[in-house]
């Protein structure tokens, strides 16, 4: 694997980059060492419209539903010159508590996509558990494939393509699991509506107690 800052090859177990000295303490000194609660979509540059945000939320929900172990977090914003998108992705996956569909997910199954809207850079970083399934050459081709959309400013479309291609790639090395059992709804007679309740313990009488 390569250093997120200078792309020099880093051997497993190395504490810092032999070329540029990048390490966790170095990035902590710049961005902080505490856990930070992050949303899946962080749009600091306000480049996404409400419709785009909704659409991407749906895409990310689909992705997490297909791969319950994984999540993808998106950051859009200007980055300083001394910080590369992969630096920020490295820090996000090591210090971010992500607000995903299921909050209990582990960050080694996370993917951080960082779009530097000022420096026109894009970076994608994968956690340890996904490195074997998403090797750097695939991630490179993935970014190159969405480069034209990024140049046009179609950020939502580019992110959607990244999510779709990542899911397609992960399906080649994952194994399918059975679907969950469906839940039946209660059809209300005469109204044409069907009622779903999160809890089945609501009783029908007014004297029932909340549990």
């Amino acid at each position: 694997m390569n250093c997120p800052h200078c792309s020099t090859t880093v051997v497993a177990g190395a504490a810092s980059c032999p070329a540029c000295g990048f390490s966790t303490p170095a990035i902590r000194a710049l961005l902080g060492g505490d856990w930070v609660r992050l949303e899946r979509i962080t749009d600091r540059s306000q480049r996404l419209s409400l419709r785009d945000t909704r659409h991407l939320e749906v895409c990310l929900d689909d992705f997490e539903r297909a791969f319950p172990q994984c999540f993808l977090a998106l950051y859009l914003g200007p980055l300083p010159d001394n910080l590369t998108p992969c630096d920020l992705g490295f820090w996000m996956l090591n210090h971010g508590a992500f607000q995903s569909l299921q909050i209990m997910k582990r960050n080694e199954f996370g993917i951080a996509l960082v779009l530097d809207t000022l420096g026109q850079r894009a970076g994608i970083t994968a956690g340890y558990a996904l490195e074997r399934h998403l090797p750097p050459d695939f991630l490179q081709l993935l970014l190159i494939s969405v480069g034209p959309r990024l140049r046009k400013g179609a950020l939502a479309s580019a992110v959607e393509s990244v999510v779709a291609q990542t899911a397609r790639r992960l399906k080649t090395s994952a194994r399918p699991a059975p679907r969950p059992a469906p839940v039946q709804a209660v059809v209300l007679p005469g109204s044409g509506l069907s009622c779903f309740e999160p809890l089945r313990q609501r009783s029908d009488s007014a004297t029932s107690l909340r549990s």
Binding site: M1, N2, C3, P4, S7, V10, A12, F22, T84, P85, C86, G89, F90, L93, N94, R106, N107, E108, G110, A112, R121, A122, G123, I124, T125, A126, G127, Y128, L130, E131, L134, P136, L139, Q140, L142, L143
Partner: peptide
Amino acid sequence: FCGGGGAV
């Protein structure tokens, strides 16, 4: 959780 595997 992450060793920087990625691309830019």
